[in-house]
Amino acid sequence: MNSKITTEAIEILKKSIEELESSKGSVLSGVQKLSRAAQILSNEKVVIWCEIQLGNSKYTEVLEKYLDTLIAINKKKSEATEKSCKEAEDNLIELGLIKAEHYSLDELNAKAAKSGGGYINIGFVEEKYADLVRRKTGNDGTYYKSNLNNHLNYVRKAAHNRATLLYNSLAFSDDLQTSFDILKNQIDDKLLDLNPELAEKLMIAFKGVANNNSEEWSQSLTTCRRFIENLADFLYPPREVQKNDRQLGQQQYINRIWAFMDEAIKSESNRELAKSHVDFLGAYLQKIHKLSNKGVHASLSRVEAIKTVFHTYLMVADILEYLDEDMINKDDVLNIHVASLDELQSFLDISKNAAKEIVKLRVQKGKLDPSDLLTIRGISTKTVSKAEEMFSFVAID
């Protein structure tokens, strides 16, 4: 392939990945950039997938018909519905669509809900979701915020996977992914389902060690430490009790990951292997933290930073293997410590003044407990129960 074309495609894919990994990035922009890169590379499969996300009626009308026939079969299987389904799928094949790529079960599930946008341009879905958030309402009678969000999350993740695979095939001299690339992509993918904020932190750490700047390597180590602290908060929130003579408070995040592994991993040999990664990281990051406080960032080598990021991925691989499926698929929860005034007012059904008092209190105390909300005028025990249901109270760095 022409080196100029390869370089151009790599740069566009980088921008697409950055857009899709950023919490403030646009899904529409990420898909458009992916489409542009795929066109440059003459990757017809990805081009068509992007066209579907962008609402190209050439594909979406036939896909909608196919989806409708599947729903009809599910309701009442008959010779007529099966025939309609076969005809619709034949039309998809004639258009060059591939089942695993363009109308897989995951893809169809993401598009099935009309209240989530269906096969409408993903840009419209993004705008409609933002509008409902801005208006502090769950739906407008046609579109529902939760379904729109699920649709956006699916397209973000699917576009990110495609952009990453294309990027890796170009950025490395060997077309085959390394074993670590495969592991990393799988972990990133699962973490994005589990907790997008955690996934973003880990991906940022990896991005830092891929940089030639020594300050970036040092920052990656700091990001790894924060990632592990946040992971511990997510898996095993701090508590006053001890487990196996280990404290489980806010600062004892390594101990809390140990406690999670004790309860989640039944095999003793598997448990000890997983804990070895945690022990290494805990001791190493503690040493790095002490050195950084002495102002010796520059003396830390890139190899040390890479080792830390790699061990972090290995540790997460162990943990993800033993997480309950329900936990991986749970919906994202807003955090009380970063929720906006609008979110507090809307989700808790309280006055603006009460929402302001929550913000003042969290600034004053640093970390809120549900009981703290009862000190605010206008907030009842019923509101506190709603807050515990709607918001996470885990502290955020």
Results as ranks from 00 to 15, higher is better:
V333S: 13
E343Q: 14
V363L: 12
D369T: 14
D349T: 11
L323I: 15
N329T: 14
K330C: 09
S340P: 06
I336M: 07
K365L: 15
K356L: 10
V309S: 04
Y313V: 04
N353H: 04
T308S: 06
E304H: 12
Y313I: 04
M315G: 00
D342V: 05
D324F: 09
I350M: 03
L373R: 03
Q345D: 04
S340Y: 07
A339M: 04
V338M: 14
H311G: 03
D326W: 06
K365C: 07
V338W: 04
D318G: 07
V316H: 00
P370K: 06
V316R: 05
L368A: 05
G366H: 06
K367Q: 13
T312W: 02
D342M: 09
E357P: 01
D331G: 06
K365A: 08
E304Q: 15
V359E: 06
L334M: 08
D332N: 11
K356I: 11
K307V: 06
V333K: 13
V338F: 06
I319M: 04
K367E: 11
T312R: 00
F310L: 01
I306V: 10
Y322F: 15
I350D: 01
T308W: 00
R362Y: 05
L320G: 15
D342G: 11
L323Y: 06
E343P: 03
L373E: 04
D332W: 09
V309Y: 01
M315N: 00
L368G: 04
D331I: 06
D349S: 11
D349G: 10
Y313W: 13
H337V: 09
A355C: 07
K307R: 14
I336G: 00
L323Q: 08
D331S: 15
A355P: 00
I306P: 02
R362N: 09
I336V: 13
H311D: 05
K352W: 01
D331C: 08
K307Q: 13
L373Y: 03
A305T: 14
D342T: 12
V333I: 12
E343I: 12
I328P: 12
E357R: 02
D324E: 15
S340C: 08
A339Y: 02
H337K: 12
E325L: 11
L348G: 00
L314F: 13
D349V: 14
N329V: 09
G366Y: 06
D369H: 08
A305M: 06
L341F: 08
R362T: 14
H337A: 13
N335I: 08
K356H: 09
E325G: 07
D326L: 10
E321S: 08
N329H: 12
L348N: 01
T308M: 05
R362V: 10
K330G: 08
